[in-house]
């Protein structure tokens, strides 16, 4: 008996779902649950992680991310405007900066600003400053490209209309072009903040004091002190979702609201 196209599509969907279920069951059967239970999912011994995972780990991750984002956003905006400048020197400087800091591992930048720069200039930096400068500089390279694309996506007529009303270039940028560009770049910018949140874990290379631990370092510390295997790291990892998921939801809400007032 021949099947209609619709029937064939339905059968195909059932087959795909079946393959997925089989794969999941196979993985579950293959796992050594006994070992995993004591070394990864050993939640009985993690009590001591609380409440400091909130008061120290989560708090510091949020602080480091926020500091880096403020620097990254202002630096990124400056770089984006430089890249769009009619003055070639600015364009070259911005391009060089962006290519360099996008291409170099963030970890190396941390080491450079955490150890190299203090040695070179004989200064002792607060860890907040190191995070702000190093992570902020890396972030500004990424954010610059996002913002440049957003600024260029604002129709040229907007700048022309603003200039025709007597606004100087900088005023037209601030009042007309940048507010529209920000609505356009909100989704990719959310992405940058999420990446930044996770990159803040790289500061473990700096040798922090206990009160400066962020989530990952806090989790690694738990591995050695609690005797619950990798479980503390798993818990710390879950806390990143506590930051990133609300962030995504917030951005989506913003997006749908600005979609209403935007053409």
């Amino acid at each position: 008996m021949a099947m209609t196209a619709r029937q064939r599509a339905k059968v195909s969907l059932y087959v795909q779902a079946g393959i997925f279920v089989v794969a999941v069951v196979a993985v579950i059967l293959a796992v050594d649950w006994k070992t995993i239970g004591t070394s990864v999912f050993n939640f009985s011994k993690i009590g001591p992680m609380f409440p400091d995972i909130f008061l120290v780990g989560l708090k510091n991750t949020l602080i480091y991310t926020a500091l880096a984002f403020v620097v990254g956003l202002s630096g990124g905006l400056l770089l984006a405007l430089m890249k769009l400048s009619s003055f070639p020197l600015y364009r070259w400087l911005a391009t060089g900066y962006i290519e360099f800091f996008r291409g170099v591992p963030a970890l190396l930048v941390f080491i450079a600003f955490g150890y190299g720069v203090p040695l070179a200039f004989g200064v002792q930096w607060d860890v907040n400053i190191v995070v702000m400068v190093s992570l902020g500089m890396v972030a500004s390279a990424y954010i610059a490209e996002t913002l440049r694309a957003g600024l260029q996506a604002v129709p040229k007529g907007q700048m022309e209309a603003a200039r025709s009303l007597g606004m100087p270039q900088w005023r037209a940028m601030i009042s007309i072009v940048i507010p529209q560009a920000f609505k356009i770049v909100l989704p990719p910018l959310t992405n940058e903040i999420i990446l930044l949140t996770k990159d803040s874990s790289l500061i473990y290379v700096l040798g922090l004091t206990a009160s400066q631990y962020e989530l990952t370092k806090f989790g690694r510390d738990g591995i050695s002190s609690l005797g619950a295997g990798l479980t503390p790291l798993l818990v710390a990892g879950a806390f990143y979702l506590v930051i990133t998921i609300p962030l995504s939801l917030l951005a989506r809400k913003f997006e749908s609201r600005s979609a209403r007032t935007k053409r």
Partner: peptide, 12 residues
Amino acid sequence: GMVFQHFNLFPH
């Protein structure tokens, strides 16, 4: 004053 073909109102 300048009036454009495509209006160029500020949508925000």
